[in-house]
């Protein structure tokens, strides 16, 4: 069984929001579209987005980290948003595990959003139906696109390739490997939703310097006679020992 998912590498995400607007851009004219915006040029503009990048600060100065945190629907393996839907508009595709909303069935009761602990669904205030990340289902199978383009829009856009896409049930896939090797984790594991999307934590590279590495034989100061040598007149053991 296939479970497609995104794996987001917080180690390299710089919070550029490319995934946010490229998602909006693809989807507003796609099968989920339009993704409406209210007050687009007025006070407090707001609209439907499938993906948001948030920023958190962790710790206290100067030992603080700034964390950029992209979040879209996690395509839970056990999605609590699906069974609660009264119309069947919310469904999880058996063939690839993508959780979708059937916009023609949805009655806009918003109940599914109450059931999603992640705040991953957004109600389209103009279309009056529930919307959410589709994993770009209308791209990834589109045979009219070149192979390299059959990826979610956000994945293609991401300048740091912080967004990996693939089948987390296939142990050989790049995403499974990344989860395994780089400490991939799920959000709010306490609810047993088994989110398909995973996150990779920050990883730090350190340099360890030993003092003796500073004083090497090929020190160029030697060439120029600049390595500090004690003056002849300075005290030495020679002066005090008699053997």
């Amino acid at each position: 069984m296939t479970q497609l998912a995104l794996v987001i590498d917080l180690n390299v995400c710089v919070g550029c929001h490319a995934c946010v607007t490229s998602c909006k851009e693809w989807n507003t004219s796609g099968s989920a579209g339009p993704l409406c915006d209210e007050r687009p040029y007025q006070a407090d503009p707001t609209g439907t987005f499938f993906n948001r990048v948030q920023t958190f600060e962790v710790g206290h100065y100067p030992h603080s980290e700034t964390l950029h945190f992209p979040k879209s629907c996690l395509h839970c393996e056990d999605p609590p948003c699906v069974p609660v839907c009264p119309t069947g508009a919310s469904y999880k595709r058996e063939e690839d595990g993508i959780v979708l909303v059937d916009y023609d069935k949805c009655i806009g009761c918003k109940y599914c959003t109450w059931a999603c602990p992640y705040g991953a669904r957004e109600f389209d205030e103009k279309q009056k139906v529930m919307k959410k990340c589709t994993l770009c289902v209308d791209r990834i199978y589109d045979q009219s696109l070149a192979e390299i383009d059959r990826k979610p829009s956000c994945v293609k856009a991401c300048p740091t390739s912080a967004r990996l896409f693939g089948d987390i049930h296939d142990p050989e896939s790049a995403v499974s490997q990344a989860i395994r090797e780089d400490g991939g984790y799920a959000l709010m594991p306490e609810w047993g939703t088994h989110p398909a999307n995973h996150y990779l934590p920050r990883r730090k590279t350190k340099l360890n310097i030993h003092n003796d590495e500073l004083e090497r034989a090929d020190n160029p100061l030697k060439v120029d006679g600049q390595l500090p040598k004690p003056g002849k007149g300075e005290p030495s053991m020679d002066d005090v020992s008699a053997w």
Partner: peptide, 14 residues
């Protein structure tokens, strides 16, 4: 100590 600095939508969202 984790503080949210931005939620990605200043005009609010659903």
């Amino acid at each position: 100590h984790i503080v949210q600095m931005s939620q990605g939508a200043m005009g609010g969202s659903f």
